[in-house]
């Protein structure tokens, strides 16, 4: 049986949105899939050397569970985003959810190929040294080389 392939496009640079690509990529790799993730636009944040800057936000996100009801304008106050992020991180730790860094390391260990979008790197003025070693730069055509033969292709 030929090896199955999973292709993921990661476009979000929030702490919570970093989980789906890394969870699915690492799990697929453990199941024997060949996996590639193409990080574009805000998704590039998931390839930065440190992921400490990633945050969650409740703004524009009415589905986020809150410990207490809070008017949206209050949620927009300075410091709220950092506060919610540290709450989320401590809840995750308590519940045995892996840190994003750990999941990313597990992906790298499992040979998940990470491609950073060259256009976005140029657009936002990043330098290749801002990103983890092992990341490759490429464009849409590079992604399609793998995605075109994939069994599963997900946009996140």
């Amino acid at each position: 049986m030929a090896t199955k392939k999973l292709a993921i496009i990661a476009t979000k640079g929030a702490l919570d949105w970093g989980y789906p690509p890394f969870i699915l990529a690492s799990t697929a790799a453990a199941l024997g899939y060949d996996v590639q993730i193409f990080f574009t636009f805000y998704g590039l944040q998931l390839l930065r050397k440190s992921l400490n800057h990633l945050k969650v936000t409740s703004l524009g996100n009415p589905g986020m569970p809150m410990p207490m009801p809070m008017p949206v304008l209050l949620q927009a106050l300075p410091g709220m985003q950092s506060f919610m992020t540290s709450m989320m991180k401590s809840t995750m730790k308590k519940k045995g959810v892996a840190s994003l860094e750990d999941l990313r390391s597990l992906c790298i260990e499992a040979d998940v190929k990470m491609i950073g979008c060259q256009m976005t790197v140029d657009l936002f003025g990043f330098s290749p040294s801002d990103f983890i070693p092992g990341m490759e730069l490429g464009g849409a055509a590079t992604f399609f080389e793998f995605a075109g033969e994939s069994d599963i292709c997900l946009f996140m």
Partner: peptide, 12 residues
């Protein structure tokens, strides 16, 4: 104490 997907990844 580990949550998804860690048990599977550690098993692998």
């Amino acid at each position: 104490g580990l949550n998804c997907p860690l048990p599977i990844l550690r098993t692998k």
